[in-house]
Design a protein around this nucleic acid. Structure first.
Length: 598
RNA sequence: GGCUUCGUAGCUCAACUGAAUAGAGCAUCUGACUACGGAUCAGAAGGUUAAAGGUUUGAAUCCUUUCGAGGUCACCA
């Protein structure tokens, strides 16, 4: 079935040819959805066409409108307001569309096809010296949802995680554990591994600051000098050197402590409902990229300073000089990223590489793609930095003064607990088994969190308000889940054994609200495509809400199960079921579970 | 300071590529009901889209300047 917009567009071109003997540029033809306050389904904006017609907006619109209605059987009537030509599409067109889409479980989703790409989405990328926090939640939810949406667009998607498991910061927690601990383990303390390690990282920082203060007081040092001279930091640096040299004892401890952290992360990922096809470790990739630096040197794209460090000069591109390799030949962040990018794009033939990374690294990724471009890699333009803004909390109430961030586990557990409290208070889940209740609390608590974060444009800094997110009214996850559960309940009460068994009669009269709903359903494939193109789950989230809101009005205005006309009743049940299907599929792409009952 | 992102109702967010009277929700106020699930629905009020200029038939959207907030400018990752 050809899209109606395309049909109208083609019609307009023919109309212009026939009316004014001109061949318009297709881009000047704008078909919009008609705004609610006007009559019509689609609107042609005629202003850009006035130069071609040489007539007034109203006259032009009327002439085109008349031609279209006379020549396109899908159109029923038209009206003109100022320079806007509103077109009314035949109800039978929408019924035919509905009959085709209803019950089609792949409606809106593309399967692999000629334009499918091999896409890699890298997200999460945690450090192993501290637990995941609120910022990681946005990262993980975005990465997971975008991967799903791209899959729904027919792309071959790989989700990967690059764990930052080495470096001075890891040594800090290791050192603190050795010096200030008593051999505690997650097993001996019952503390989650990532939290235990994180606690020692904090401990290191505390002791380190103490030493700095002492040095400044007793030796009359300034702060910068004290930071460099503190014994603790020197020990940590020694440890890093030992690690790089492969010292057995240090490597063993490193393995053990990282193991604890991974176990903790796995738990959090599972709780959050995200996963990966492959996990990379920086300890395995940090040496990659040195060859590329040599290649760049031989091509004179890079240059060497007196101390043998390697740089690139991007001042001509409006950027700065950037270090690519240290004087002692060790690699930096950029070296590694150059290496992994080349490996992924050339060895695995990735068509697109998406990095979900916070916007504080915008500059890094700008430099990364510039460097690759200068090295002559045409695929450099296939790197996409999905940059997102910080997540704040209202009034910073939960933010401690030291800037300690909100822990992911605590936040998730808190959301689930709130869902439980609210539910118990309202007595909504009486008669459910304990396991059912647990599942619903989790779905609602997490649904609230996920939906609230994903509905916001990724690039914007946002405020997460836990209380607002879990409200059962408004643009929230729980509101959508609740409406969904109500529809499911309605369908099971309808006692139709095969909901989509009967086709809707082409002669059925469509009420305005019914038509509106079908029109929103009609947009679903477009929304999926657009969300994939923009890599924006927010588009999909807001679409789901719009659909639910519209449905609630429909639900309120019409009888469904008690409708006396059997054909009408069946249609309304089918319409409800179709909407439930779409909501479920849309929300699942966002990683949000939809309880059948709640 | 250089570069960069952002600034929309009291609050949290929308507005696809420039298009009609800038939309929702929360909060506030006013109403509706023995209910196909009341965790409901309807209505009201709330805006000089930070400010000023410019381009355009048309600007929240594009350009310039100013103000304000964040990010970044490490031999950290």
């Amino acid at each position: 079935m050809q899209s109606i917009e395309q049909l109208i567009k083609d019609g307009v071109i023919k109309a212009l040819k026939s009316l004014y003997q001109i061949e318009p540029d297709a881009s000047t033809i704008q078909i919009n959805k008609t705004k609610k306050e006007f009559i019509g389904d689609f609107t042609l904006v005629v202003f850009p066409l006035l130069k071609l017609s040489g007539k007034s907006p109203e006259l032009t619109a009327n002439e085109i409108g008349k031609w279209l209605v006379d020549n396109l059987q899908e159109l029923e009537s038209y009206n003109v307001i100022k320079g806007f030509l509103n077109l009314v599409v035949n109800a039978s067109y929408f019924i035919e569309f509905f009959n085709q889409a209803a019950g089609n479980t792949t409606f809106g989703f593309a399967s692999q096809n000629a334009s499918s790409k091999k896409v890699m989405v890298e997200y999460s990328s945690p450090n192993t010296n501290k637990p995941l926090h609120l910022g990681h939640i946005r990262n993980n939810l975005l990465g997971f949802a975008v991967a799903n949406i791209l899959k729904a667009n027919g792309h071959d998607v790989k989700k990967v995680n690059l764990v930052n498991d080495r470096g001075i910061h890891i040594c800090k927690s290791m050192l603190a554990w050795k010096k200030f601990g008593n051999g505690e383990t997650p097993a001996s303390t019952g503390i989650k591994g990532d939290h235990l390690v994180g606690d020692y990282y904090v401990r290191f920082d505390k002791e380190y600051k103490k030493q700095i203060a002492e040095l400044m007081a007793s030796n009359n040092m300034n702060e910068d000098a004290a930071k460099k001279e503190a014994p603790l930091i020197k020990e940590a640096q020694d440890m890093l050197r030992l690690w790089e040299a492969g010292d057995k004892e240090v490597v063993e401890l490193w393995k053990a402590m990282n193991g604890w952290v991974y176990k903790g992360f796995d738990e959090t990922y599972k709780k959050m409902g995200v996963d990966f096809d492959r996990i990379y470790y920086e300890s395995e990739t940090y040496l990659l990229g040195k060859e590329i630096v040599q290649e760049g040197l031989s091509k004179s794209v890079f240059f060497k300073k007196e101390d043998a460090s390697v740089w690139i000069d991007l001042t001509a591109d409006g950027l700065d000089q950037k270090l690519l390799l240290r004087g002692d030949g060790t690699s930096v962040y950029m070296t590694q990223d150059l290496g992994t990018a080349v490996q992924r794009c050339e060895e695995y033939h990735i068509d697109e590489l998406i990095y979900v990374v916070g916007n504080e690294q915008n500059y890094h990724f700008q430099v990364l793609s510039k460097v690759l471009e200068k090295l002559g890699h045409t695929w450099a333009k296939n790197l996409f930095h999905l940059s997102y803004g910080m997540v704040e909390l209202p009034e910073g109430k939960m933010k401690s003064r030291e800037g300690t961030v909100v822990d992911a586990d605590d936040l998730i557990d808190g959301m689930v607990k709130t869902a439980e409290d609210m539910s118990v208070e309202l007595g909504k889940l009486e008669g459910f088994s304990d396991t059912e209740k647990e599942a619903i609390y989790k779905a609602v608590g997490l649904g609230a969190l996920k939906y609230f974060i994903l509905k916001v444009d990724p690039k914007k800094t946002m405020t997460f308000d836990p209380k607002e997110s879990i409200d059962f009214n408004g643009n929230t996850g729980p509101f959508i889940q609740y409406t969904y559960a109500r529809i499911r309940s309605l369908i099971s009460k309808s006692e139709l054994n095969n909901v989509f068994g009967d086709k809707v009669s082409m002669t059925l009269h469509l009420e305005q609200k019914e038509k509106e709903l079908i029109k929103i359903i009609y947009q679903f494939p477009e929304v999926i495509a657009e969300a994939g193109k923009d890599k924006s789950p927010a588009l999909l989230a807001n679409y789901c809400y719009e659909l639910v809101k519209e449905y609630n009005q429909f639900y309120h205005d019409f009888t469904i199960l008690k409708e006396e006309d059997a054909a009408k009743r069946t249609f309304r049940i089918q319409l409800s079921a179709m909407i439930a299907d779409i909501i479920e599929r849309g929300m699942n792409l966002l990683g949000i579970a939809m309880p059948q009952r709640m």
